[in-house]
């Protein structure tokens, strides 16, 4: 029943809002933007809640909206301002050799959708199949990109060790 679904989505949102915020923050690294992302995602989800056919899929469905809203804010910020945060990724790598970056930070510097795949898989525990639904990618694409992301992380972490010497 529809109204039951609506209420279940609201309950799901209320129970998981902390997790939503963390994921948004891992993309945006800033409190205000992260709050915006969660607020927008909740609004979008409830406005289009009839798109959710099966309540069992609320988790992947909501994360799809949340990831989209988070990346949308990054895109908007890039268009509107050019701040230090928006400098190309190489700048991170240059400073990388001075202080050894943690795996967590390295993940945050990965390109999309490698970054999302790794976060969703290792932090949020989604299966590759679920991630393919969240990111609207083919499951095999998700798999190969996950491996590519892991390769890149390995290289970066090794590279830093070498620089350290």
């Amino acid at each position: 029943m529809a109204e039951e679904n609506y209420q279940k989505i609201v309950d799901y949102i209320l129970a998981n809002q902390d997790k939503f915020y963390r994921l948004a923050y891992s993309y945006l690294h800033n409190k205000e933007n992260s709050l915006d992302a969660v607020q927008n995602a909740v609004y979008q989800a409830l406005s289009h809640y009839q798109d959710l056919r099966h309540i069992q899929k609320v988790n992947t469905w909501f994360y799809r909206i949340l990831v989209h809203e988070s990346l949308e804010i990054i895109r908007k910020n890039k268009r509107e301002t050019l701040s230090w945060d928006d400098l190309p990724e190489e700048s991170y790598e240059e400073t990388g050799f001075l202080q050894s970056e943690s795996l967590y930070e390295e993940v945050n510097h990965l390109e999309e959708p490698l970054q999302s795949i790794i976060k969703l898989h290792y932090y949020e525990g989604f299966t590759l199949k679920e991630i393919s639904l969240i990111l609207e990618l083919n499951e095999n694409t998700v798999k190969s990109k996950l491996y590519r992301g892991l390769e890149m992380l390995k290289k970066k972490l090794k590279g830093e060790v070498a620089y350290g010497f």
Binding site: Q17, L35, Q39
Partner: peptide, 21 residues
């Protein structure tokens, strides 16, 4: 890395913003 991720502090405004949405 996940532990570090889970350390991200939750601001108290969050529930207010969710309610507003």
């Amino acid at each position: 890395a996940r532990e570090e991720y889970e350390m991200i502090p939750i601001p108290k405004e969050l529930s207010m913003r969710v309610d507003k949405a």
